[in-house]
């Protein structure tokens, strides 16, 4: 199982498509930096099919005023949770 990290918003960048193309059915996806916009209910549809495997970084949501606006299907993790995710995955692949 790999952890994929995306730091771009699906509203403006196609990087999310590259990440999705590289993902196996068991892989996880973490949204960080501007990528956390993808956790909004309006944008989370780009990540359809990742239920239970889609994460967003709390600190980056918080600093952008987006923490209360996440879709319920997204699991919010803090930076310690980010570390956990990298421990649990065999490898981390970043898409930026």
């Amino acid at each position: 199982m790999l952890l994929h990290v995306v730091n771009r918003s699906p509203a403006t960048s196609r990087v999310y498509q590259q990440a999705l193309a590289g993902m196996s059915p068991e892989d996880r996806l973490l949204l960080i930096e501007d990528g956390v916009q993808g956790a909004l209910p309006q944008l989370v549809r780009y990540y359809a099919g990742l239920e239970g495997r889609l994460f967003a970084l709390k600190e980056d949501l918080e600093s952008r005023g987006l923490l209360g606006r996440c879709d319920a299907s997204v699991q919010v993790v803090d930076v310690d949770g980010f570390v956990d995710l990298t421990e649990e995955a065999e490898r981390t692949v970043s898409w930026y």
Binding site: A21, G22, D27
Partner: peptide, 17 residues
């Protein structure tokens, strides 16, 4: 093909993008 991409990623010990 799209389906082969993911397998290639998991088949390497280190991936640099």
């Amino acid at each position: 093909s799209p389906s082969a991409l993911a397998r290639v990623l998991s088949g390497h010990r280190l991936v640099l993008t």
